[in-house]
Simulated assay, not measured.
Amino acid sequence: MTSIMKKEIFEEPGVVKNLIQNYVTPNDKINIDLPQKVDNIVIVASGSSYNCAAIAAPLFIEYANIPCECEYSSEFILQKKHFITPDSLYIFVSQSGETSDTLNALKMIKQEGVKTMCITNAKDSAMWKLCDYKILSDAGEEKSIASTKALTAQILCSMLVLLKLKHKNNSDISGYLNTLRRLPAYLERIKSDEEKIEETAKTVATYNNISILGNKNYYPIAKEGALKIKETCYLNVMAYPFGEFMHGHVAVLNQKSIVIAIIDEENAQFAVRNLKKIKEEYNPQIVCITSVQEVQAGDINIYIKTKRKMKAIFGSLMTLQLIACKMAAILDKNPDSPKGLKKVVKD
Rank of each mutant, 00 (worst) to 15 (best):
C233Y: 08
Y282I: 03
Y282K: 03
Y218W: 11
S257Y: 02
V252S: 14
G225Y: 01
S291F: 07
S257A: 03
I286M: 12
E231N: 09
G248A: 08
L235Q: 05
V287T: 11
V292C: 06
K276S: 14
A271K: 00
Q255M: 08
P241I: 13
I286C: 13
N217M: 12
G248S: 03
L227D: 06
I262Y: 09
S211R: 05
L253A: 02
G298E: 05
L235C: 04
V292I: 09
E266Y: 08
E231G: 03
Q255I: 07
N217S: 14
I258R: 00
C233S: 14
N274R: 06
K223L: 15
A261P: 02
E265F: 14
N254V: 03
E265I: 11
E224V: 07
K276W: 10
V292A: 03
Y282V: 05
V295M: 05
K216D: 15
F270Y: 14
K228V: 06
L227Q: 08
A261G: 08
K216W: 13
E244Y: 14
K230Q: 12
T290A: 02
A261F: 08
E231L: 03
A261V: 10
V287Q: 10
F242Y: 12
H249G: 12
M238R: 10
I300Y: 05
Q285G: 02
N254L: 02
A268K: 12
F245D: 06
K223N: 15
Q269T: 13
I300Q: 08
N274H: 10
G225F: 06
N217G: 00
F270H: 14
H249C: 12
S291I: 01
A297S: 04
A222Y: 05
L227H: 06
L227F: 04
Q285I: 13
Q285F: 13
K228M: 10
L213E: 04
V292K: 06
K223V: 13
E281N: 11
Y219R: 10
D264K: 10
E280C: 10
C288L: 02
K279M: 13
L275P: 00
I289C: 10
E244C: 11
Y240D: 07
L235Y: 04
N283M: 08
M238E: 14
T232R: 10
A239V: 00
A271P: 01
I260K: 00
P284M: 00
F245H: 01
E231V: 02
Y240Q: 00
K216N: 15
P220C: 10
G298C: 07
C288M: 07
P220W: 09
F270S: 15
A239E: 02
V287P: 12
M246N: 05
E224Y: 03
I263P: 09
Y218G: 11
E281F: 13
Q269S: 15
N274E: 05
V237A: 01
N236I: 14
E224H: 06
V272K: 03
N267T: 07
K216H: 13
V237K: 05
